[in-house]
């Protein structure tokens, strides 16, 4: 783990408020995740990879954009580890970088239709851009 990556890991722990040591590696988060098949790293892997400091791999992962923020892993975690908070923190590590927005305003008109509620667009902007 590089110095930079170690700092990143500390940052993720700090802003997520997650204590990865509480995890008993039961896998219920990944058993419950509705977006499992859309992810290459799954909720339980976020916990162990953050613990190991492997943040860069996670930052490059498509999992960040396919997590639904449905809070199922948070609700059902028997140890209150709450992996979605780690996914959110890693996502912020990406989009807080200069020019690293995942969703750009110019691409939005192509993704929407006349029925789509404002709520969808606002949510996506909050999740995918800074």
């Amino acid at each position: 783990m590089t110095v930079n990556e170690k700092e990143l890991a500390e940052r993720v722990i700090e802003i997520s408020g997650v204590n990865t040591r509480k995890c008993m590696k039961c896998g219920k988060c990944s058993g419950t995740c509705p977006s499992y098949d859309e992810m290459e790293y799954h909720p339980h892997q976020f916990v162990s990879m953050v613990e190991k400091g492997q943040i860069k791999k996670l930052m490059e992962s498509k999992s960040l954009w396919t997590c639904l923020s449905c809070f199922a892993c948070i609700e059902r975690c028997p140890r209150s580890v709450e992996p979605a908070k780690l996914i959110e923190a890693v996502r912020l590590c990406v989009i807080r970088q200069q020019g690293a927005n995942h969703m750009k305003a110019c691409s939005v008109p192509d993704s929407i239709d006349e029925n789509m509620p404002q709520q969808a667009i606002v949510s996506a902007f909050r999740k995918y851009s800074k």
Binding site: K25, G27, K28, C29, S30, G31, T32, C33, Y36, D37, H42, H44, Q45
Partner: peptide
């Protein structure tokens, strides 16, 4: 039944 298989890393 939807669950995780941690050894094979699949749902």
């Amino acid at each position: 039944v939807q669950g995780s298989d941690l050894i094979s890393n699949e749902q």
